[in-house]
Design a protein around this nucleic acid. Sequence first.
DNA 1: TAGATTGTTAATCGATTAACAATC
DNA 2: TAGATTGTTAATCGATTAACAATC
Lengths: 216, 216
Amino acid sequence: MKRTNISNNVIRRLPRYLRKLDDLASRGEERISSDKLGRQMGLTPSQIRQDFSCFGEFGQQGYGYNVDSLRKEIGQILGTYRDYSAILVGAGNLGTALVQNFEFIIEGYSFLGAFDVRPEVIGKDISGFPIYDVAGVGDFVREHKVDIAILTVPREAAQDLTDVLVEAGIRAIWNFTNTEISVGENGPLVESIHFADSLLVLTYHLAELDDANKKK
Amino acid sequence: MKRTNISNNVIRRLPRYLRKLDDLASRGEERISSDKLGRQMGLTPSQIRQDFSCFGEFGQQGYGYNVDSLRKEIGQILGTYRDYSAILVGAGNLGTALVQNFEFIIEGYSFLGAFDVRPEVIGKDISGFPIYDVAGVGDFVREHKVDIAILTVPREAAQDLTDVLVEAGIRAIWNFTNTEISVGENGPLVESIHFADSLLVLTYHLAELDDANKKK
DNA sequence: TAGATTGTTAATCGATTAACAATC
DNA sequence: TAGATTGTTAATCGATTAACAATC
């Protein structure tokens, strides 16, 4: 599989392809053409073929793409078979929800446990995984060479814990704290879920509609 | 304020500007130039000026932008002062986390309450807001002309509840179900938070780094 | 006034779309 | 073989960047 200088736009479309292909597979579809896929996803067939061709030749002229093997290829590209290790930092409602509701976190990764600062939850468990004292998170990351930290602590604690994680050599932070965390030069990858941003995009469009109606 | 044919890229940058300006304001900054702002956000000054100029003239030559008034302008554009009404559909861990942790949901909107299907939570409350039987959500939306539904139900219930909400005339759905929900022609706005997509982007980059290292 | 910095027009760059030869 | 559909090259479109006159 090649991987040369892929644009962000392409990368962000890959998980959507994967979801769609999972869906097609679960409905028993065996093959799909870029044309059909495009119509189902609201993309042009050209774009789909361009996107895939960034990574290799996954189709067959006159036939299209085999759903199952394309799905595996894209899973491969996205690293889903690499068994990265992950921990949860912040075992509150949000962290608990993520681990409990979204099987993909536990199934797709080596989930090693959770960390929290509150004495009343330390020692308990989430979906069978222990909740440790957050005081030990740095050592734990070092010892287990943890790849990904899911950061779901309150905003106030975000930067301090980030510093600890970076210091301990974490490779990636999935950031739910609604703050911009800073990781310095050569720091880990950071992917943030900014809930408020998403909601504001929604209200932008509501406001837009309201304004358009008012004008009439 | 004008609003003509704004590209998606621009719209998605607006909440980031708002966050940054809130931050500057809280640190007591009074003015900011596109140049400084650009350096702090990793954008070019040109792009920042272009973005703002989609909506009006908010700056002053030789001075820059007044942090506080720019912040208000962008808030206005994003509809933050419009007091849209919202309900939570699905009072599980995730929904509870959203309402409890993210003040902006309760502070920025008329939050009217939560709905769930489980008898043991109906009648209880989240942060002082009642949890109603989800069986009545359609009537509630109709009666209160609810603008936004925050959809945090299990994947299996997602489409059925969407149908109920659409039928009742909901204007926007903030979708956390990790599924593509379909709302039909002239349906509400939908903004989805696909947790898995975000995590996959992270592992894509991890895999990319690993591959690059292997080659060396 | 001189310096700073905007808003906007023009130039560049990159991403999407169209076209088509290759081939299953 | 004929029809379908890919992978890729070229054309188009849109978004970002650069430049600069206007002006605070």
